[in-house]
Design a binder for these strands. Structure first.
Length: 424
RNA sequence: GGAGAGAUGGCAGAGCGGCUGAUUGCACCACCUUGCUAAGGUGGCGUGGGGUUUUCGCCCCACCGGGGGUUCGAAUCCCCCUCUCUCCGCCA
């Protein structure tokens, strides 16, 4: 969330930010927050004064003579009732302020393109050429079914639509690309993490998914837990509530995990193949560092490059786009998507999403660090990016690398993960 | 799932209704002393909020796992939640 002080100083910035993200209701939350804040700030000095008075009074009680004591107690009791009433009010205001602040989105950076949906995303660069086939290429799912690698009907029988069964070489290929991605990141100094997949509401809130993302989340209400939609959630939360030593920053993590998404409100969208499914595996990179905008920007370029290196190794054509305001989430200040070329769509399709948050998540998570110089306590900055998500990545992989005889060519970098095979 | 014990500042560990935002040790910072690869002394050393000040700063409030409650007054008593440990049961 944003610092209430930032809102006080420049509420218009937060309002305009929410509007740029096409969140009109959340823009209103700015004014709600400020109204509650004003009321709260008027109340606090009054309460503090009353508490100070009470504190002094109660210290004198023991010394009083029994005669005076009784009337004094009666007086204190009366004041206490009044104080409790105001404290109740204070609690309500604090809850109201928090509720409103949680609604206020991170302000998008100036270079975020205007626009209401992904059609307005701006291409930053395009790497690699879409393949030209001298045969009729198949869509990934048709090819996979023909090879006995994929069965969505039986998956739907047991789990509903947007599910899949992977068999044989395709299941092994998935494991190979994921493991390759992890190894690549570990090689760059990232620490591998295997996190909890079921997390508490506060962790969802801390990373900015709640409030707002409840409908997209599989919730285990019986236990008050939520299935994560990305490892970003538990991994960014590792140091929640902590005050880290600046000397130990940045923290770089890479996590391979299952991800679960309800995909509510996407009925009829991307129903063919493995594009939009309820569960998938993802290798995610997360960076936590000191609150320095230029560092955050540098990290952002780094984590995008990391993923581009993986795509280069997998020999997949892709492009990088700057995500527009309307396509940005609540907590992001800026986001790059990487889109791989998907022949069956004759278009680029999103496969990666790289976000920088500045202190928006850290503030919610109460994740701070103590500066080496001056011993100040400051909220951290956080970032994350997909390294690889499967089965979606299998779409470009299988389609781009398919051969005329319905086989799949394996780029050299991946062969060690598939027993040296050059073709599947 | 059942029974019990516990959660205090970076760590260790006292306190168990008012004199405690908190004894003490370690760690850390500053200064002093001694001098030889380290010891001794003094002081400082949590977080958040509000107020005040032209600077250093000063004042007030809150916080002893989290949330309620009892009381004039709670780290200390009561209730709920979370977590940790021990024992029993169950199960991969």
């Amino acid at each position: 969330m944003l610092d209430i002080k930032v809102l006080r100083d420049d509420p218009e910035r937060a309002r305009q930010g929410a509007l740029k993200k096409h969140f009109p209701a959340r823009a209103d939350a700015v004014d709600r927050a400020l109204a509650v804040d004003a009321e709260l700030r008027a109340l606090i000095p009054v309460l503090d004064g009353m508490r100070a008075e009470q504190k002094q009074a109660s210290k004198r009680i023991g010394a009083l003579a029994p005669a005076e004591r009784e009337s004094f107690l009666a007086e204190q009791k009366a004041k206490k009732v009044e104080l409790q009433k105001l404290e109740q009010k204070e609690r309500e205001l604090q809850d109201g302020l928090r509720e409103a602040l949680l609604q206020v989105p991170q302000v998008p950076d100036p270079e975020v393109p205007d626009g209401k949906d992904d059609a307005a995303n701006l291409e930053v660069r395009r790497i690699g050429e879409p393949p030209v086939f001298d045969f009729e290429p198949l869509a990934h799912d048709d090819l996979a079914v023909s090879r006995g690698w994929l069965d969505v009907e039986r998956a739907a029988q047991m789990a509903g639509s947007r599910n899949y069964l992977l068999f044989g070489d395709l299941a092994l290929l998935q494991d190979a690309v994921l493991r390759f991605a992890v190894d690549h990141m570990v090689g760059k100094g990232f620490t591998a993490v295997d996190p909890p997949l079921l997390v508490r509401d506060e962790v969802m809130t801390g990373t900015g998914f709640f409030p707002g993302g409840e409908e997209q989340t599989y919730r285990v209400l019986e236990d008050g837990l939520n299935l994560i939609g990305t490892a970003e959630v538990p991994v960014t939360s590792i140091h929640a509530g902590e005050i880290l030593d600046e000397a130990t920053l940045p923290r770089r993590y890479v996590s391979r995990s299952m991800c679960f998404r309800r995909e509510a409100g996407t009925y009829g969208k991307d129903t063919k193949g493995l594009y939009r499914v309820h569960q998938f595996q993802k290798v995610e990179q997360v960076v936590v560092d000191a609150a320095d905008e230029s560092k955050s920007r540098a990290h952002h370029e780094d984590i995008v490059r990391n993923s581009e290196e993986v795509l280069a190794a997998l020999q997949l054509p892709y492009r990088v786009v700057a995500v527009c305001g309307g396509d940005l989430g609540v907590p992001q200040a800026f986001k790059y998507d990487i889109e791989c070329w998907m022949p069956s769509r004759n278009a680029y399709g999103e496969t990666h999403s790289a976000s920088r948050f500045y202190d928006y998540q850290a503030r919610r998570l109460k994740m701070r660090y103590r500066t080496t110089e001056g011993r100040k306590v400051i909220h951290c900055h956080t970032l994350n990016n997909t390294v690889l998500a499967s089965p979606r990545i299998l779409i470009p992989f299988v389609e781009v690398h398919q051969t005329a005889d319905r086989r799949v060519r394996i780029p050299e970098a991946l062969r060690p993960y598939l027993g040296g095979r050059e073709l599947l």
